[in-house]
């Protein structure tokens, strides 16, 4: 055996199910990356692939500056939802969240209400994932399919158009979001969350915010408030409370 075959990405199946000619994503799209990795996790078992359909299909979100002056201003933006049927009546729901807002983004975009709501509704497996950590994401999708009952996965997918950054930083920004604890990766199996990736040294939130141009209007006071909120949420998660 070739010694180079030992690198982990080569253990994944090389066959593609999310074909590049079937989508019209922009270059460096985080959603396309997340969907591709999800399909890579699913493609081991063909029955899973057959039951997948888009509850809310993903489309290019328009940033506030582009929409101004059109009718779409008042329209609510909904994140893309992929629903996969398991055997029986249960299903796996995957949300591809690109934090699209039609107005100027406020600090409220960092709050993720969906995972907590899913836990409250009695979903058996709830997790957050990011395509910057591909093996973590693939693991979670497989575990969500294998667990009994409904499961929900929230995937943060950076959007170069909406967040206003260069397309080559898509993966890096997702990594910064996790390292600065703005989007901690955890999974909830029996009511209490467990951090799957716990960095010993957490980045300041400022570094994540300054990478993107959509937060240019934030002032220092707001950033400090965000930092305090993120810290309290993260210590809560470390103690095992949602």
């Amino acid at each position: 055996m070739d010694k180079f075959a030992l690198y982990v990405p080569q253990l994944l199946p090389f066959k593609e199910h999310f074909l590049p000619e079937a989508h019209r994503a922009c270059m460096g799209c985080g959603i396309a990356l997340g969907v591709r990795q999800t399909y890579k996790a699913l493609e081991e078992k063909n029955e899973w692939m057959e039951g997948a359909h888009w509850e809310v299909p993903f489309k290019q979100p328009l940033p506030g500056s582009l929409i101004k002056g059109t009718k779409e201003v008042g329209e609510e933006t909904r994140p893309a939802l992929l629903q996969i049927e398991k055997d029986g009546q249960a299903h796996l729901l995957i949300c591809f969240d690109n934090e699209a807002v039609t107005a100027k983004p406020t600090p409220a975009v960092f709050k993720k209400a969906f995972p907590a709501a899913a836990v409250a509704r009695g979903f058996h497996y709830v997790a957050t994932a990011c395509p910057s950590y591909p093996f973590d994401l693939i693991d979670k999708v497989r575990r969500g399919m294998e667990s009994e009952g409904n499961s929900y996965i929230h995937i943060l997918s950076p959007c170069p158009v909406g967040w206003d950054f260069e397309s080559e930083f898509t993966v890096q920004i997702g990594r910064f979001a996790v390292e600065s604890a703005i989007f901690p990766l955890y999974e909830v199996v029996t009511g209490s969350p467990r951090l799957t990736i716990d960095h010993p040294k957490i980045r300041p939130v400022e570094q994540y915010i300054h990478l993107q141009n959509r937060f240019n209007h934030f002032k220092k006071k707001e950033i400090l408030a965000i930092q305090a909120e993120v810290d309290s949420h993260y210590t809560k998660l470390q103690e095992g409370k949602l």
Partner: peptide
């Protein structure tokens, strides 16, 4: 290149493919 395959894994458009020599 050490043939680790990270580029292949992070390509959103599935454009990067592995050739026969690895």
């Amino acid at each position: 290149c050490v043939r680790c395959g990270l580029c292949y894994l992070f390509c959103p458009d599935a454009a990067i493919k592995r050739s026969d020599d690895g």
